[in-house]
Design a protein around this nucleic acid. Structure first.
Length: 324
DNA sequence: AAGTAATCCAACCGCAGTCGT
DNA sequence: TACGACTGCGGTTGGATTACT
């Protein structure tokens, strides 16, 4: 196979790569097949052995990353739900950039995905507010505006769908700490690609939640070409490209629509309460709400997180700032 | 329609921790 | 204890896509 120009190539090749003709960059369908097949046969772990024994010209690290972030059958793809957003905000406020730890509480989500979400969405808003994402102002904004609003929206969605409040993500909290209890739910089927795999013959006839349609001996979705498997975007049956307006529910088995959130959302019982309402004058001056234009996506459009904002919030906060 | 800017996210890197010898 | 191999984590990059002019 041709050597693929890598991403983020900023330094000289590692010695390991200099010695062998290792591939870098996007994975091809063939490589994905090989890795899936090998893991199905031998299990996870010992990634350097995987790379060697499976005949993949990849580093062990690359194999591990590809498997964990993309090929693993329980990887959940698609938009981050309201509940997940709430959970991310809460857990990040407690643990900071401990993406892996945060990801453990969001079944099916990878640390990479959460990290990307944080950087592209949350930090974007911090930038718009011209404050540091680690600043007290921004954290207060999250806690007293975003999170209560998320709770409202979750409850509203639950009400609209006729879900009793007891089954929604109930929230109570103190300003100092939040109690989280974790119930481990099985949200996704395990290794569901094994069912149709004929390992003995080497013939792989499997459907994989992250790869649309059948794999192996069955022709791959026409949206795939060997050279674009991980970057094929909108036509990618992996559901790689996650656009705020795209509906990818057809691309995988897991519900991503709001109406189903309660069913699949982990019952990490984040408990917030009325105390989430900002105490008068709590906010420190410094947030630059003038920077938020009236038609800013942040306030009246865009994705779920963006929608948490509206003009009333801004006016309210400006009032708070003026009072100080 | 074409060019440009902004955004998204898969994949890379370096570093630190763990484990076996 | 020292060393190397391996693994996992968090930060960063840049190609692809989307939005805007």
């Amino acid at each position: 196979m041709d050597r693929v120009k890598g991403r983020g190539c900023k330094s000289s090749m590692q010695s390991e790569e200099e010695m062998t003709d290792l591939r870098r960059g996007p994975w091809t369908v063939e490589e994905d097949f090989t890795l899936i097949n090998y893991v199905a046969h031998h299990g996870e772990g010992r990634w350097n052995s995987v790379a060697r024994c499976a005949g993949l010209k990849r580093t062990g690290k690359s194999c591990r990353l590809r498997w964990l972030n993309y090929l693993r059958p329980d990887v959940r793809r698609g938009n981050i739900t309201l509940e997940e957003q709430l959970l991310i905000l809460e857990l990040h406020s407690r643990w900071g950039n401990r993406w892996s730890k945060i990801a453990q509480h969001l079944p099916g989500r990878t640390d990479n995905e959460i990290k990307n979400y944080w950087r592209t969405r949350v930090q974007k808003h911090a930038k718009q507010l011209k404050c540091d994402v680690n600043s007290k102002q921004f954290k207060d904004t999250m806690r007293y505006l975003w999170m209560p609003r998320l709770v409202e929206r979750i409850q509203a969605a639950a009400t609209a769908n006729g879900v009793s409040s007891s089954t929604t993500t109930t929230t109570t909290a103190t300003t100092n700490s939040t109690t989280t209890t974790t119930n481990t739910h099985q949200y996704f089927t395990d290794n569901n690609f094994n069912n149709n795999m004929d390992i003995g013959s080497g013939q792989v006839i499997l459907s994989h939640p992250n790869i649309g349609g059948s794999l192996g001996s069955v022709p791959v979705n026409s949206g795939f070409t060997p050279e674009n498997s991980s970057t094929a975007a909108s036509s990618d049956s992996f559901g790689t490209q996650v656009s705020p307006v795209s509906d990818l529910t057809d691309c995988y088995n897991y519900p991503v629509t709001q109406s189903n959130n309660q069913e699949y959302f982990p019952t990490n019982q984040l408990i917030y309460g009325d105390t989430l309402t900002s105490p008068t004058g709590y906010f420190n001056p410094g947030l630059d709400f003038q920077a938020m234009e009236p038609n800013n996506q942040w306030m009246d459009g865009g994705d779920l997180l963006d929608n948490l904002w509206n003009v009333e919030d801004v006016l309210f906060l400006q009032q708070q700032l003026n009072n100080n």
